[in-house]
Amino acid sequence: MRLEPIAHPGLARRLGPPAAAIVATVLVAALLAALAGANPFAVLGQIVTGAVGSRFAALETLNRATPLIFTGLAVAVAFRARLWNIGAEAQLYAGAIIAVLLGTGALGSPFVLPVSALVAMLAGACILLVPVLLKVRLGVDEVVTTLLFNFIMVLIVSYLLEGPMKDPMGMGWPKSAALIKEARLPRIVEGVRLHWGFGLALISAVLVWLIQTRTTLGFEMRAVGQNIRAARFAGMPVNAVLVKTALLSGGLAALAGWSEVAGLKGHLSSDLSPGFGYTGIIVAMLALLHPLGVVVSALFVAGIFVGSDAMSRAAGVPTYIADMLLAVALLFMVLAILLTRFRVVRG
């Protein structure tokens, strides 16, 4: 068996496999629920109502999607240039640390929000810059180095929370002091539990899309990602492009942590991110690295997580089903996307 490219995929070819992937994912989810001893239809229904069934649930899903949009964008930008940034988690925590450093009284209003956002982006960019410079200068594989930075940052965060950043009023809990009011992201609509981090994420997605499609840098990033030899031959500054990609990617991932602290939590604790950096990879892959697609897939992934939480409380099926669902959805979707462009030929 081999794959043969299809020159002009028709509408059925372009929509069929992804639709089949969604159906297959639902079937597997039903099977998993049945294995857990619950009524599959009830479980699926509860996931959906849990995610979007009420105003509260929908807002919760939007809030959960916010950091995923940022990390998804970070991964999508980097992967598009074939820069394998697996370290969004580390960059996220860098942003979170800055939010606390500048937001607990070091800066006064009205500059604290924009300044701390910019510094947070810079910090995330610096975290990614180290592996990228190692890659560009010495050929060190960035998959390994960016991944290892995640563990380093988690340890730094727990050191900070046990030491210099520990909230003296925290009753001994390893968490930071709370942000001052001026350093908090306001809510989009008063009285509604949705902060401006979500708005910022949407704006970022549009900006990234504009960069990729309209600017010389975007053209260079795509060329470097698809054929680095041709890019180099054509005279593109390949190393500079990789560095700029890293700055953008690291900055976006940092905003995830920054907006979680400044928008949602109001302080830093070591459980700030339940793996948003890693889930960002799934989000980006599901979106085929398209920046606007990232928004959709982040909403989908967030919905599954939030919905599964609610379902778990009601049906007693473990929330691990959410992780399995995402994994299955990703596998089916990647396969489906392949099948929209290639047909399987015998022999």
């Binding site: 053209f219 795509r222 060329a223 698809q226 054929n227 030899r229 041709a230 890019a231 031959f233 593109m236």
Partner: peptide, 16 residues
């Protein structure tokens, strides 16, 4: 391998 980017359009390739 060096002259073109396979997944780019003709237009993008003329501008490389």
């Amino acid at each position: 391998k060096t002259g073109t980017v396979a997944d780019f359009t003709l237009a993008e390739n003329t501008a490389l």
